[in-house]
Simulated assay, not measured.
Amino acid sequence: MIGFLVLLLIIWIALVVIGAVVKGLFWLAVIGVVLFLATAAFGWIRRRT
């Protein structure tokens, strides 16, 4: 499960970088940040229980 969450975090970081590099894809960076934070929070909550 932790491996899957790490994979998702890497994918979201890649989306943020692509969105930041390509100026027209700013929305992709925003979605990447939101998904990264949601996945990180989910993993942190699951880890604590």
Rank of each mutant, 00 (worst) to 15 (best):
A41F: 10
A40H: 06
V21W: 09
V22W: 12
V16K: 04
F4I: 14
I31A: 13
V17I: 15
R47L: 10
G19F: 02
R47F: 12
G43H: 03
F36R: 00
A20C: 05
L35Y: 01
L9G: 04
I10W: 08
M1T: 11
K23C: 00
V6S: 09
F26N: 11
I45Y: 10
M1N: 12
R48G: 06
F4C: 06
A20N: 10
G24D: 13
A14D: 05
L8C: 07
T49A: 13
F4L: 12
F4S: 09
R47T: 10
R48L: 14
F36A: 12
R47A: 13
I31R: 01
I11Y: 11
R48D: 11
T39R: 00
G19V: 04
V34F: 13
L9Y: 00
W44F: 13
L15A: 14
V6L: 15
A40V: 12
L7K: 03
A38T: 10
L37A: 14
V16W: 05
F4H: 07
F26H: 05
R48Q: 13
T39F: 08
G24L: 11
I10T: 14
A38K: 01
T39I: 07
T39P: 01
T49C: 03
A38Y: 03
L37Q: 00
G32D: 02
T49E: 12
R47I: 08
W12Y: 13
V33Q: 00
L35N: 06
F36P: 00
V17Q: 05
R47M: 08
I13Y: 02
V6Q: 07
G24I: 07
L7W: 04
I31W: 01
W27N: 02
L35W: 05
W44D: 01
R46C: 04
V6G: 04
R47K: 06
V34L: 15
K23L: 13
R47D: 08
W12T: 15
A29T: 05
G43V: 03
T39L: 00
L25E: 07
I18G: 00
